[in-house]
Amino acid sequence: MKIIVDKKGLLKFIDSIRKKYRLIAPVQKDEGLFFDAVSNTSKIVFDYINPKNTAKEFFFPIKDPILRYDSDSIEEVKKSKENIAIFGIRPCDARALSVMDKVFNWDTKDGLYDNRRKNALLIGFGCNKAGDHCFCTSFGYGPHESKDVDVMVYQLGKDEFMVLGVSKRGVGCVVSGKKASPVHESRRKELEKGIVFKKKMDVDKVYKKLDTVFDSDYWTGASFHCIGCGTCTFLCPSCHCFCMSDERNIRYRIWDSCQFACFTKHTSGHNPRPTQRERYRQRVYHKFSYYKKNFGEHLCVGCGRCTLHCPMKVDIFSIANGTLDINEK
């Protein structure tokens, strides 16, 4: 069911969600726009491309306690009973979660992640414009995609929003309102069509090409400016690498990055990926080749954050797309 509400009505709907969920939404902070817990819905920002952080940290936190130990026992950390709802998640970030579900359930289930995932409510917010670095449409979905969320919201006019329940849980929580008409739906389609993307890549071609250019010198130049800071991986909605660390009787799982020099270093001192060339190449292959080989989908969703926030302006789009121009045997 699709309903039409004004902004007041939308905020009322979002507020009603708070009864059952801890609400996360885009809010302005000193350092920029972030997804964060919201207690006052008037603080929610509606005009943005994407928050700096991604939705993944609410399912796969930066530092997540796994277990407590002492000198003779191990105790599982109790799973949080609190369910979260994220308002304002873009189709790219929502897709990233669906994509990550696959690795976190690869034969063995990851309870820490799954538990939060299965109880959450995602309220997507369609985009009406694309950022300079967005390339979601390259992956066969787009800025109005609703299949990865529970409820989808589109902004049709300054004070007009269309709300639609997608999943069973989503349908269940959409309050009644004015029913949307075909006019509204065609208005939405128009808006979607009007979005201009500066970037589009043939990811299938790139995927095939990557099978042949692993040893190319291309990677030396492509990674030349990368300083291995890991920003790209931490701001990526689908990067899932982690390490573990014992600190004062708690074992944590902590985000790690394939861009760090010691990530793969063997204890013997040997490092399979000794320079940024191999490390950046790994990131590109993981996103555009390996993940698809293992799980049938690309691990990049084209949100553009890694390029936007890289201190060295390393652009994964141009680098992946640029492989198509490599002419060596």
Binding site: V103, F104, W106, D107, T108, D110, F214, H240, C241, F242, C243, M244, D256, C258, F263, T264, K265, H266, T267, P272, Y285, H286, S289, Y290, K293, N294
Partner: peptide, 24 residues
């Protein structure tokens, strides 16, 4: 093969050689 490992179950992203996860 004895790549550096952390999770042992194909999630931490550390032990792969190409698409092959040594732990799995």
């Amino acid at each position: 093969l004895e790549n550096r490992m952390q999770c042992g179950i194909g999630k931490c992203g550390r032990c792969n050689i190409g698409p092959v996860y040594v732990c799995k």
